[in-house]
């Protein structure tokens, strides 16, 4: 019987893990914010006309994407002190996650920028709009529609990756769960509670990403989707909702 106690036992550990959840959320927010801004500039640099600039940026991107986050964590926390750079656990974790987020996001942002038809910036040019205005009003808003859904997915992945920061003693969910587990030996219950906490964020996150993907399609794509839905009788309700939206 005892073997199944964890099935109803685990909720009692949630309150003890909540401080860890806030740490994980804070780490995700900070590293994604910095990471995506960095990723945006890396994307622009990769597209720069100078080969030197472009290749250097590409090297940074590939390092960010290619090195596992666990390795980055150890490099920043245990490796850098050897070079005289001493980082506390939390900044080290944020640096590692930021680096990885920058690498992945820059390719997503670059794909978004690249998917905006060339005719759009040509039209803006032909109207004498400046390069900055062309990006600000024409290219970036259209690229965002393409880039934001994958960026939301990446945010979910980064949130899950914060669990790795336990290895460098950041007091996030897993760190807390480990401490409680070793004191109570209720590993099954406490890690179940941890898993549930992660799911509380990731499942709504995935739903948001799916919604945005639907929402942010260009009007043309939207009508294509509508056409497909029109063929499926079960989607009748959805269709009218979208039609209402379109006519608004």
């Amino acid at each position: 019987m005892n073997d199944f106690a964890w099935l109803y036992d685990w909720p009692q550990y949630i309150p003890d893990l909540l401080p860890g959840l806030w740490v994980a959320i804070a780490m995700t927010c900070v590293s994604c914010l910095f990471g995506y801004v960095l990723g945006f500039f890396l994307a622009l640099l990769v597209e720069a006309p100078s080969k030197l600039v472009s290749y250097s940026a590409l090297v940074v991107v590939e390092l960010g994407r290619g090195i596992p986050i666990l390795v980055l964590l150890f490099l920043f926390y245990q490796g850098l002190p050897q070079l005289g750079v001493l980082l506390a656990p939390y900044p080290a974790a944020v640096a590692a996650l930021t680096f990885s987020a920058a690498g992945y996001s820059s390719e997503m942002i670059r794909a978004g920028l690249g998917a905006v038809p060339k005719g759009q910036s040509e039209a803006a040019n032909s109207l004498s709009m400046s390069v900055v205005d062309t990006y600000r009003f024409i290219v970036i808003p259209q690229a965002a529609r393409i880039s934001i859904p994958p960026l939301v997915n990446l945010t979910i992945i980064i949130f899950q990756a914060t669990s790795l920061a336990t290895v460098i003693t950041v007091p996030e969910i897993m760190q807390q769960a480990g401490i409680i587990g070793s004191a109570t030996f209720e590993y099954m219950s406490v890690y179940t509670a941890a898993a549930v906490l992660y799911l509380c964020i990731t499942i709504p996150g995935a739903a948001l990403s799916g919604y945005l993907e639907e929402r942010m399609g260009t009007p043309k794509q939207r009508s294509k989707k509508q056409a497909i839905k029109a063929l499926l009788p079960a989607a009748g309700k959805l269709r009218t909702a979208e039609e209402r939206q379109l006519t608004n």
């Binding site: 038809p117 005719g119 759009q120 040509e122 039209a123 803006a124 032909s126 109207l127 004498s128 709009m129 400046s130 205005d133 009003f137 024409i138 808003p141 259209q142 529609r145 260009t218 009007p219 043309k220």
Partner: peptide, 24 residues
């Protein structure tokens, strides 16, 4: 005027015509 129109799809017709005037 282009063969493929190149209107800005995320703006209404009115904003397509006003934005360049306001910015330039």
């Amino acid at each position: 005027v282009f063969q493929s129109f190149n209107l800005f799809p995320h703006f209404t017709a009115l904003k397509n015509v006003t934005l360049p005037q306001m910015r330039v």
